[in-house]
Design a protein around this nucleic acid. Structure first.
Lengths: 205, 205
DNA sequence: ATATTTGTACCGTCTAGTCTGTATAATTAA
DNA sequence: TTAATTATACAGACTAGACGGTACAAATAT
């Protein structure tokens, strides 16, 4: 054996992610990553065969983290599973609490970075991103279906798009937040989603 | 004098915009632009001193167009200026009508493209984008202030962030729409904003 | 001792940008 | 009226450096 390479690999992933969120993928050169990590080509190309390989690894790790936070939020609200509206509101609140405490705008979402340069990536990466976005849709939609067992909607609307609103706010919020330099902008948008749900659903008589 | 150069300049702007929305700015090379436009370096660097010069010209034109569509929508709803809630709903409807008719996902917004590679651009470009986003905020906020003269809000919330929701939906909607390949996704999100406003504002007694 | 991990020199290609030359068309002047 | 002039608009070869990627030696830890 030899010394452990995992810290090196992790450092590359971490720094390249930060750089891509600032400069985009094409705007982030391998040399730039090596400069930030104080490594050399040998180390980089030992852990990643190509730059595209790094992209794939980055997205896969990002997706894993994304889905695990979603599952954690679902778990953290399980105690409210027979108060489905309260559960969804608390589900959103978890993310508000994180985003409202930021001192600088959220660095952004890799999905957005990649979709903004989507032609540079192969179909597999794009499929994985879309699949994850639809997983959010599906899971939130289930929470909403539970609500409908006890509530009516003031305005009829498909739950599909209503569930998407959550992700739309994240992606759009991050962009605006970075542009106008207001760290809590996304949290405020999520509050509006809470408001909307609160007055959209009314208890069945 | 010589023959008119404006068609050439316009073609460069048009094609480079399309390419940037697909590949990002750094991912779009000048050679690539020349290939698409069937032009040569001579033509390009006659019209734009540097690549960054092109970026500046692109954003400025994009901003002009963006602000003019906003002003057009404001004008098209002026007849409802003493029914301020109806006016705002119609204002939104104008954009829904456009987005609901798309046969392919909207190509995207240059603001998002640039913000996703924001480190590559000078402060001036970023300031211009932020300023435009805040112009949307301000104008929509005025429409909302007019509403408050006749209506109360079911849930108290600053109009600032409520106005931002419009732009947030656009930016986030475009991203999701491209990823999951659903052209009318953004229009559906705007419908939810209409719903929200409709039940958030109630006539004063 | 040996497999794993990293450093360094190097290669071909692509990149933004320069340079010189040329075609076009309006202007000038005889 | 027309030939010479001039500013505009574009073509295409060229360059220096950055880019992703390779080859292989050196170092590290068991």
């Amino acid at each position: 054996m030899a010394r452990d390479g995992k810290p090196t690999r992790d450092k590359i992933l971490q720094e390249s992610k930060a750089l891509i969120l600032q400069n985009g993928y094409a705007g982030t050169s391998i040399d730039h990553i090596l400069e930030k990590t104080a490594l050399t080509k040998g180390a980089f190309f030992y852990h990643f065969k190509t730059k595209n390989d790094l992209a794939k690894a980055l997205i896969e790790e990002f997706i894993r983290l994304d889905l695990s936070t979603m599952e954690a939020a679902l778990k953290n609200t399980q105690d409210l599973k027979d108060k489905p509206l309260d559960r969804l509101l608390k589900f959103i609140q978890i993310f508000i609490d994180v985003l409202a405490g930021l001192k600088a705008p959220h660095p952004g979402c890799l999905y957005a970075s990649f979709i903004n340069e989507s032609n540079l990536f192969d179909e597999e990466i794009k499929k994985d991103i879309a699949k994850t976005i639809l997983t959010w849709r599906d899971n939130i939609e289930i929470l909403m279906q539970n609500i409908l067992e006890q509530y009516d909607m003031v305005i009829e609307e498909d739950l599909n798009s209503l569930a998407d609103t959550f992700t739309v706010i994240f992606e759009g919020g991050f962009i605006l937040s970075k542009s106008v330099n207001e760290p809590d902008l996304t949290a405020k948008q999520l509050r509006h989603l809470q408001n909307y749900l609160q007055i959209l659903f009314v208890p069945k008589k």
